[in-house]
């Protein structure tokens, strides 16, 4: 038996270039904090194809036991391959809880794990704390107008954490912990979902998550032409283009530009919001940005409440002066 009374399992994901996802580094930090409180053991799991570089990197994050599964079958996420791996690690370690980052993969995987383990799930959690020896989990509900604090009635606890809900784990100078490679077995469940094909976007432009500056437009841009203007600003600033949901749903911009509760959660050093009212669903994705600029014709727009600089007016009249001055710098 292990020397630890409790343990927490963190599910780790990588970017396409095998870098550890930021949200996974944050999940490691959350897990670390919890096992420090409970004097437990930190376990992590990473799955994928050709991930030796990721595994090497993870050695520097102070994880007590790192499980990894590396196989061509794991190149893309499919529940029939991934679910048995998570369940296998659960059986081996019987952790008190499992922490995921709130990603597109976790939206599918975490509820399946909860279902198999006969327990519950708190999705899109922003804080995990300990109150009188119990873990409690806080998540925004009702468009982030209310915060709900949950405890579990069943074990293990399973949570997905919102991006940027805590600082990422820090890389140590030295490697530590043990590593265990897993053999993979395919789930022979009859309810199989057969993978057919994948079409990935051309990766032109800077991804939102890596951008230092984001210029984002909302319904107030009025159409694709408005966004042409914002694209010019992006070029002048070396910024990435973001949007609230309506421009994505209306096909003015690609869906991946969406920032917010159900889009990307970002915190660039500068976020320029144009024609965005500042719904709580949008703020959930950007309110931690370093500096926020709001340009909106409505002086009462909510976005001004989180802005550092505000201009009340039609964007068509504001942006030409802004762009002219930017070009004068370059």
């Amino acid at each position: 038996m292990s020397e630890y009374s409790t343990s927490v399992l963190v599910y780790i994901e990588t970017e396409e270039n095998h870098e550890i996802k930021d949200v996974s580094l944050e999940a490691i930090a959350s897990g670390k904090r919890l096992v420090q409180l409970s004097k437990g053991k930190l376990i992590a799991l990473v799955c994928g194809k050709n991930i030796s570089q990721t595994v090497d990197e993870l050695k520097y994050y102070d994880i007590d036991t790192l499980y990894f599964a590396d196989s061509p079958d794991l190149e893309i996420y499919q529940p029939e391959h991934y679910l048995p791996i998570v369940l296998d690690v659960y059986e081996k370690e019987k952790p008190t809880g499992i922490i995921f980052g709130n990603t597109m993969v976790a939206i599918d995987l975490a509820p399946r794990v909860a279902l198999k383990l006969d327990t519950g799930l708190v999705a899109d959690c922003v804080a995990i704390d300990m109150e009188s020896d119990e873990f409690v989990f806080t998540k925004p509900v009702y468009s982030s107008n209310v915060m709900a604090v949950y405890e579990f009635q069943a074990m293990p606890f399973i949570v997905t954490c919102r991006t940027r809900s805590c600082p990422p784990a820090e890389k140590k100078d030295q490697v530590s912990g043990e590593m265990i490679e897993l053999k993979i077995e395919k789930d022979t469940d009859a309810n199989q979902i057969e993978f057919i094909e994948r079409k990935l976007n051309e990766t032109n432009g800077l991804p939102l998550s890596r951008a230092n500056i984001i210029v984002a437009g909302g319904r107030g841009m009025g159409g694709k032409e408005g966004f042409d203007y914002l694209n010019k600003l992006c070029t002048a600033l070396g910024a990435a283009l973001g949007a609230s949901r309506p421009p994505c749903d209306l096909d003015w911009v690609p869906a991946k530009a969406q920032v917010g509760l159900t889009g990307e959660v970002v915190a660039p050093s500068l976020y320029i919001a144009v024609g965005i009212s500042g719904s709580f669903q949008h703020l959930a994705g950007m309110s931690d940005s370093g500096k926020i600029v709001a340009i909106n014709r409505d002086p009462k727009a909510n976005i001004f409440k989180v802005a550092d600089y505000g201009i009340v007016g039609e964007f068509e009249e504001v942006l030409p002066g802004f762009l002219k001055q930017l070009n004068a710098f370059n």
């Binding site: 001004f304 802005a307 201009i311 009249e317 002066g321 802004f322």
Partner: peptide, 17 residues
Amino acid sequence: CLYLTDTTLEDAGRKLA
């Protein structure tokens, strides 16, 4: 929020930069 309230909106844009 610091509001930029210049005479014209174009000036406010320039001031922002």
